[in-house]
């Protein structure tokens, strides 16, 4: 029996590619947001509304990650925004290599903000750096105010939390104060936006913040 020392990070390949992407985004002045949520949080609807509100002010593009189908990419394409679909064929997260390959189909020089809509999942995508500047976790009020406690890693690595579907608060037992307390317990630096992609409530603050990023 003998021992061979390895001491290598398991995700080193992803992290190396992510750093290359981060350098590239910085060089080309592209602000990249990695959008993370459970399935059904209203992430694509929020993105569609956001793209409409930014139209004419900011050049945007989208990378869509889905396990199957290009339904979401079709929705985004209706807003006349460059969009690249990544289908993971069962994979539960996007990785930096998939993003790198998708970038070949985008003219980065013409883009100011690139949204990467990750696969709907609050566990696996938290571990994969995509070279983004911000990780944005989107939670909807229908999911319950205990989401941060159940998925602490995601809330720990996120920079921004968008609480969506606030138009439904009157019909739910969702306690918005408790939700934010839970989230801040895990990550005191989280920056919150309360939105309803359906009614448009709160989208002005969210898009103001986005416009100030560039």
């Amino acid at each position: 029996m003998s021992v061979i020392t390895v001491e290598r990070k398991v995700l080193e390949k992803n992290d190396q590619v992510a750093e290359m992407l981060r350098d590239q985004f910085t060089r080309q002045n592209v602000t990249v947001l990695n959008l993370l949520s459970s399935p059904g949080s209203g992430k694509t609807t929020l993105l569609e509304r956001t793209l409409e509100l930014l139209r004419g002010h900011i050049a945007t593009a989208v990378i869509e990650g889905d396990v199957q189908t290009d339904i979401d990419a079709q929705r985004i394409a209706r807003h006349h925004v460059p969009v690249v679909q990544i289908i993971t064929n069962g994979g539960c997260h996007l990785d930096a290599m998939l993003v790198r390959d998708a970038l070949a189909k985008l003219a980065l020089d013409d883009i100011q903000i690139l949204f990467i809509e990750n696969v709907g999942n609050l566990v696996c995508p938290a571990s994969y750096d995509l070279g983004e500047k911000f990780k944005v976790v989107i939670v909807s009020t229908t999911e319950g105010d205990d989401k941060p406690v159940k998925y602490p890693k995601m809330f720990r690595v996120a920079n921004v939390c968008v609480l969506n579907k606030i138009d439904l608060l009157d019909y739910l037992d969702f306690d918005i104060v408790r939700f934010k307390e839970n989230a801040r317990m895990i990550n005191p630096n989280l920056h919150f936006f309360d939105t309803s992609a359906k009614t448009g409530d709160g989208l002005d603050k969210w898009t103001d913040w986005l416009e100030h990023l560039i």
């Binding site: 003998s2 021992v3 001491e7 290598r8 990070k9 398991v10």
Partner: peptide
């Protein structure tokens, strides 16, 4: 932490 520390071989 998340790394491969070492391999044991025969």
């Amino acid at each position: 932490e998340f790394y491969i520390k070492e391999l044991v071989v025969e």
